[in-house]
Simulated scan of single mutants.
Amino acid sequence: MAGKLIMHAVQYDRYGGGTAGLKHVEIPVPTPNKDEVLVKLEAISLNPVDWKMQKGVMRPLFPHKFPYTPGTDVAGEVVGVGSDVKNFKAGDKVVAILSLATGGGLAEFAVAKENLTVARPPEVSAAEGAGLPIAGLTAHQGLTQSAGVKLDGSGKQANILITAASGGVGHYAVQLAKLGNTHVTATCGARNIEFVKSLGADEVLDYRTPDGAALKSPSGRKYDAVIHCATGIPWSTFEPNLSANGKVIDITPGPISLLTFAIKKLTFSKQQMVPLLVTRDGENLDYLVKLVKEGKLKTVIDSKHPLSKAEDAWDKSIEGHATGKIIVEP
């Protein structure tokens, strides 16, 4: 039945083209496989990976085929379930991560794997939930797995630097880091300094000032770990600011960062470059949703755009100056 229904979606059918390459189309509502749920979408959040894939940054891996409906981070209401689905039924409010390979987010309906779908309590709005998957999991995994921060506060004191702290990943990273036993130094533009302090950062640097560009802690601390959410900062800028065993966790590793990672490994350096590739994880996503419910984590929303004007959201993401998350609403 569902396969015969038609929905509105936004797609692109080739690499490149930017916002002009997006097309508004009418396509069949997808049918869930046996391990999937069909979700009527209420909010979708964009991530830089969405437009980078369109540029061809991840070819030949993603997308698997054209036309492609971008977007992986969604929230909405379950309206259908596959035969093997045990934990969800029609009417349940959820947050889900879709596959990068097949996408599907910029649409009125999407199918999601049951194991990458989590319940969304009434205290968490669709937009707050949709912001979490990629950005929240990246921040969470960078801090807990790569930097070794214990979010229950039980670990030893650590000094953490978070670059681009007002962005999607950065604003979650500041809040999560402060749940651990950490002193957080953050960088952002001048207009966001008070905002980043309000998230809990202990000291904030304007990246355009000499000290900000040099990443120097105002209190003279060396960093045990850097959650690096900006781009274009060379290793030589990080090195003098790191503690003896300091790590730079790069959430958008490019060729230079991968080369630095290899050199540091080969030379047995105690200071390390750590490329982070986020793992889609339903359990961690559920943990983040619960933190939002408890008021310990918030999704800051930069802007909301109707699906009919998804191009505006796409443009805003490409510009790279969003404060928090960019949301599209069907």
Rank of each mutant, 00 (worst) to 15 (best):
V274Y: 03
G295L: 12
I249N: 09
G17W: 01
A244F: 14
A230K: 01
V292C: 08
A20D: 15
V124S: 07
S257P: 01
N33I: 10
V85Y: 04
I97L: 12
V278G: 09
F109E: 02
Y15T: 12
N181G: 08
K296R: 13
G167C: 08
M7F: 00
F261W: 12
R208C: 09
S198R: 12
P133W: 01
I6Q: 15
G104I: 11
L266P: 08
A20M: 11
A244M: 14
A190F: 08
A313N: 07
K93T: 09
A130P: 12
A313T: 03
L285G: 10
K270M: 11
V10R: 06
P121I: 01
L215R: 08
Y207F: 14
V78F: 03
P255F: 06
A43D: 01
Y223P: 09
S257A: 15
V118K: 13
T182C: 12
G76M: 06
F238K: 10
D312A: 11
T163I: 07
T209E: 15
R14E: 15
F88I: 11
T252K: 04
I27N: 09
G17H: 00
A90P: 13
E123F: 03
A2V: 00
S45C: 14
N87S: 15
G155I: 04
E77G: 02
V10H: 06
G170Q: 00
T252M: 13
I301M: 09
P330I: 11
K222G: 13
A90S: 13
G17T: 03
A20I: 08
N115K: 14
I193Y: 08
P32M: 02
L132W: 00
